[in-house]
Write a protein that binds this DNA or RNA. Structure first.
Length: 567
RNA sequence: CGGGGAGUAGCGCAGUCCGGUUAGCGCGCCUGGUUCGGGACCAGGAGGUCAGGGGUUCAAAUCCCCUCUCCCCGACCA
């Protein structure tokens, strides 16, 4: 391919909208353009990369027996009502009406659609298991799109769904996906981590995420450098960095007018935050609970949701007053009217401070293990910087990361709600056991750009680079160029030849920016029968005779591909 | 949804506070010439509803009101 024949609008400067370097590079290198917040156009180079990524995904999905399909982007309200997600997706779902006024969604994910297909078509255990996948555009009306391809409102995703008849079967499907994902990301040249994750809105039993470390990532990873424990902060278990609080156990009610927050109480009563029982009213559906954590921690809605088996939210101030008859800030666990879920470390407090459950009063000397009735003792606090590893007590590391893949064991949530049942060997009707597995295609590109960028541009892994070879041609000897091009074609090397009438500097700068991993320069050395090979990432220059150059390049390319593809 | 910032040529920006020639600069673009191993040089040139709408004024990029778009931060932790 000739540079002139491709639309590659490179930019000299970083567009102002680029909020992270990798995104800035993709814009500058002419891979993508933004149409609107969180909505992108893929230009020739970007599309070529995306297609290569998709093909790797396809190959690996097919290798585990997954079958490619294509579902619809539009979906009717009715199936979302069946799963009760028309509500729970809330504003994140793009909705529209057809001419008759019926409601539709631009699908943010496809569990409902798969379940619809499965319940209509899968009748017998003989038809199971199945793994179905597609590469499709998803739509999510993100409250705040950002980072270019990081968080989009319209984005391409590979999503697959496993249908099994047993829980053991689900475990196998999950493991298959995990292995396939590892191969996919390795072949795409990414350095990644597999971590425990939360299943959030999807619902389900177990889930794991594939993460690429990056300071621009939106997810927080918790990692133990010693034992290798890795988890998303949303589910991370940890040990508090300080000892459990022991205070005076004599109870004393203290007048604390207007003193509400932990920091205010801490200062006013001269008690450290870890000696304060922070009581927060949460609602699981209609049902209220009091969640208690140590004052130096935050409660974690996700963990609470999994403890209670349903989505919970923190009550509004008015709801607090209506339910407990006291304003937020003085809520306390003594004589609580609602069941108490206490964090395992708040439970260890002896003689701590809590709200008195009475306006403008706090109470000292509270010991959870003696003073009030407890519904559950659980880990419901958010891990924080400074905490120690639950397993080995090493200090945990907190790092930002980009989520590139997520695998879930869904279980029977969708099949039961939507009626996807099969008949087993014994003639019994059973819900299909499902799994759901996603990969963000665009995020792979962005992550690669992030991982392999330098001050001049990027150096994409050869497997996902739009081309394998970039030729900077100074047009000094047409015959040689033509001959080399012929040879490249014969050897099936994907090349981009820059024979534009531009100054050398411009061509080199563009080549560095675009990031094709192998380059040859056809310049002055041609007269001596020599051309230069330059390895973009390694920044190595090799001089080779014109006679051997194509063979040498082929060798390098094959070597690079082998390193990534051999698993 | 709340708060902050921004919108001026394809891109990056100045000008706006304090209204007043023909709205500038760098890069890019076009023409001609010279160059040609790291974003070349010379000469000439094109390109603007100053986000949109309304208002104030003799006069608005500049002041006021409304709308749209984009970016950043936050979103109930008592």
């Amino acid at each position: 391919m000739h540079f002139k024949d491709l639309f590659i609008p490179t930019l000299r400067e970083i567009p102002r909208e680029a909020d992270n370097p990798a995104y800035g590079l993709l814009l500058r290198a002419g891979y993508i353009r933004k149409l609107s917040s969180g909505i992108f156009l893929f230009l020739p180079l970007g599309l070529k990369s995306i297609k290569k990524i998709e093909n790797i995904v396809r190959e690996e999905m097919n290798s585990i027996g997954a079958q490619e399909m294509l579902f619809s982007a539009l979906s009717p309200k009715s199936i979302w009502e069946e799963s009760e997600r028309w509500e729970s997706f809330g504003n994140d779902m793009f909705r529209l009406k057809d001419r008759k006024g019926s409601d539709f969604a631009l699908s943010p994910t496809h569990e409902e659609i798969v379940t619809f297909l499965a319940r209509n078509e899968i009748k017998s255990f003989r038809e199971l298991p199945q793994i179905w996948y597609q590469i499709q555009t998803k739509f999510r009306d993100e409250p705040r799109p950002r980072g270019g391809l990081l968080r989009c409102r319209e984005f391409s995703m590979k999503d697959s769904y496993s249908l099994d008849m047993t829980w053991e079967g689900l475990d196998i499907s999950y493991e298959k996906h995990k292995k396939a994902y590892e191969r996919i990301f390795k072949r795409c040249g990414l350095k990644f981590h597999f971590v425990q994750a939360s299943s959030g809105l999807m619902g389900g039993k177990e889930s794991g995420e594939f993460m690429v470390l990056s300071e621009y990532g939106e997810d927080k990873l918790v990692m133990c450098p010693k034992c290798g424990y890795k988890a998303n902060k949303e589910v991370a278990k940890s040990l508090p960095f300080n000892e459990s609080y022991k205070g005076e156990e004599k109870k004393e009610k203290i007048y604390t007018p207007g003193i509400k927050s932990v920091s205010e109480v801490s200062e006013f009563l001269k008690v450290p935050p870890e000696g304060i029982l922070k009581s927060i009213l949460i609602l699981a559906g209609e049902k209220p609970y009091l969640a208690i954590v140590r004052g130096d921690y935050e409660i974690h809605i996700g963990k609470l949701s999994s403890v209670l088996g349903q989505t919970v939210r923190i009550a509004e101030p008015e709801e607090v007053e209506n339910t407990l008859g006291v304003s937020a800030g003085f809520v306390g666990p003594l004589n609580s009217k609602v069941p108490i879920i206490i964090d395992e470390y708040a439970y260890k407090i002896e003689g701590g401070v809590a709200g008195a459950g009475e306006e403008d009063y706090h109470i000292k000397g509270v010991t959870p293990s003696k003073d009030f009735e407890i519904f559950k003792i659980e880990d419901i606090r958010e891990a924080k910087e400074g905490d120690y590893c639950y397993n080995c007590k090493e200090k945990l590391e907190f790092k930002n990361a980009i989520e590139i893949g997520h695998i879930f064991k869904l279980g029977t949530r969708y099949s039961e709600k939507m009626g996807a049942y099969f008949t087993d060997k014994n003639g019994e009707k059973k819900p299909i056991i499902m799994g759901s597995y996603g990969i963000g295609i665009g995020r792979i590109l962005l992550s690669a750009a992030e991982l392999y960028r330098d001050e001049n541009g990027m150096a994409l892994p050869i497997t996902i680079s739009p081309f394998e070879l970039h030729i900077v041609d100074f047009n000094l000897d047409k015959d040689t160029s033509i001959r080399i091009e012929k040879e490249l074609k014969a050897k099936e090397i994907e090349y981009l030849i820059d024979d534009r009438d531009e100054s050398p500097g411009v061509k080199f700068k563009d080549a560095d920016l675009i990031g094709i991993p192998v380059r040859i320069t056809l310049g002055k050395n041609i007269q001596k029968g020599i051309a230069d090979i330059y390895l973009r990432k390694e920044k190595e220059k090799i001089e080779v005779t014109l006679k051997d150059i194509v063979n040498k390049v082929k060798e390098i390319i094959e070597e690079k591909k082998k390193n990534l593809n051999d698993i």
